[in-house]
Amino acid sequence: MGYSLWIALLTTLICLVIAYPVALVVAFAAPKWRPLLLLLVILPFWTNLLVRTYALKSVLGSSSPLSQLAEGIYKSVTGSETFPGLILNDLGVIIGLVYVHLPFMVLPLYTALEKLDRSYLEASLDLGASQWRTFFQVMVPLTLPAIIAGCIITFIPAFGALVTPALLGGTDSLMIGSLIEDQIKRANNWPLGSALSMLLVYATFLILALQSWLSERRARRTELRA
């Protein structure tokens, strides 16, 4: 459970860091390029998850050029003799989960950025702010609801992911999804499997409750200032 939480959190964070620039590029691209770029973002959805994960497995597998490149860099940087590999460990799980869930993060961010009134950004620049300052003090706060929404819809499926950790993880990368599967299918321990499933459901409810509480509190705070 703790392990699942940790992996899902890390996945969400990495997704956010990658997705924000991607969403920015799409939202600020010339209008005629936008549909194409957006298509590239959602294209993976058209392929079955299992197929995509297997594809990723062969792209990142130990004999793939990508893996060999990573191995070379890893060995020369750390000086170590053994390379843990890109998949069949926690790294593989995270790479896989980030890859699968990236569109969930990009789409809400893109929508928010596209709707964002450019004059706020221009006003910030006009008042002397640098691009970075404008990003952190104007753009991020104004797209915060989308950031939160993106994080939640990335975190929840990543938390309960089954296929990706099973195929790309190591033998010890037991996320809660795989654990449930094991209990029900192999150990034939339905009560424990069900209990674990409910745990997942509760955790999801908890997150959603937290979000609504946060947004309500924000609304109330702005009212109180009156």
Partner: peptide
């Protein structure tokens, strides 16, 4: 400095 048509008050 500019005052925008939409004001752009943050």
């Amino acid at each position: 400095n500019m005052v925008f048509q939409s004001y752009a008050v943050f």
